[in-house]
């Protein structure tokens, strides 16, 4: 028996990329949750006698600081673990928020058309004409530092991308014969959006969300690199990179380790999105042995 009887779960398990992506992000979440217990030191505790220690495997590394210390003698491992908390929170909430706003406006404009569509489109045009990073920075200056404000800034900047792409998809889906078939089957506008349009949007939405995971991680890092992310005492990966810049030539590890973590996270998010899209999209189920 081929794809015919294979359930969603089985289809998911059959994709190594998806397993890697989901596995890594799950691990990251667990590490972030367990940070207070796992971290060997307080992330802000300074040990000025042991600054710029190399990690365990390099010569001169000590078991006390497994990933070494930075220029202020803070434990890199502990800071990475606490930094992951910010990353996980932002990854979990920011894409959802952006998708929610973008999707809602795309459905309103795309499905009902007319002046509503015109309004939504012009609004998106206006929004996309601002440089994204600049807009986020301005927003962060206007708001105050803090994780919830970072999320707000990312949502505010990125919903327009969702809206633009999804609206085009809604316009296509609305003209499908099966939507007309639902109409003459007695379905109302909400019913059609819920049962015909939204499921059709799902593959695109998932790809966009996965992209947004990566973008959110990077955007947060950019903001914290510029010192405008979470409160100053909260360790973030972007902040670690900024701190690591100063001691790049004497010890590259405080810079390289957070960069490496970011790359892995972005990669995992991409794999997860790609795999999910393939698993969810039943259109990709071929008729067994079609000639």
């Amino acid at each position: 028996m081929t794809a015919l009887s294979v359930s969603l779960g089985r289809r998911t398990l059959a994709r190594p990329g998806l397993l890697f992506g989901a596995g890594f992000l799950l691990l990251l979440t667990l590490l972030a949750l367990a940070a207070p217990w796992l971290a060997p030191h307080d992330p802000n505790e300074q040990d000025l006698l042991n600054v710029l220690l190399p990690p365990l495997w390099a010569t001169g590394g000590s078991l006390d600081y497994p990933l070494g210390t930075d220029a202020l003698g803070q434990c890199v491992l502990s800071r990475l673990l606490y930094g992951a908390r910010v990353v996980v929170i932002i990854m979990a909430i920011a894409p959802l928020g952006a998708a929610l706003i973008g999707c809602l406006l795309a459905l309103l404009g795309g499905y009902f058309g007319g002046w509503l569509d015109w309004l939504v489109e012009r609004f998106v045009d206006l929004w996309l004409s601002f440089p994204a990073v600049l807009l986020a920075l301005i927003l962060m200056v206007a708001l105050s530092p803090g994780v919830q404000n970072v999320i707000l800034a990312i949502v505010f900047v990125d919903w327009a991308r969702f809206c633009r792409v999804l609206r085009a998809e809604v316009l296509l889906l609305r003209r499908r014969s099966y939507v007309a078939a639902s109409r003459i089957g007695g379905a109302g506008a909400l019913g059609i959006i819920w049962r015909d349009i939204l499921p059709g949007l799902l593959p695109t939405l998932i790809v966009l969300m996965a992209m947004e995971f990566s973008i959110a991680v990077v955007a947060e890092s950019v903001l914290s690199f510029a010192g405008m992310s979470a409160a100053p005492q909260v360790p973030t990966w972007g902040g670690m990179i900024a701190d690591g810049m100063g001691s790049l030539y004497s010890s590259p590890y405080p810079l390289l380790l957070p960069v490496f973590c970011m790359i892995l996270t972005v990669l995992a998010a991409t794999f997860l999105g790609q795999g999910l899209r393939e698993a969810v999209d039943v259109r990709l189920l071929e008729r067994a042995g079609a000639a």
């Binding site: 014969s177 078939a181 003459i184």
Partner: peptide
């Protein structure tokens, strides 16, 4: 009144 659509593939929600 009910309609039978031209392209049976397009008229059936693939999901």
């Amino acid at each position: 009144i009910q309609m039978i659509f031209q392209d049976a593939t397009a008229a059936l929600n693939p999901r």
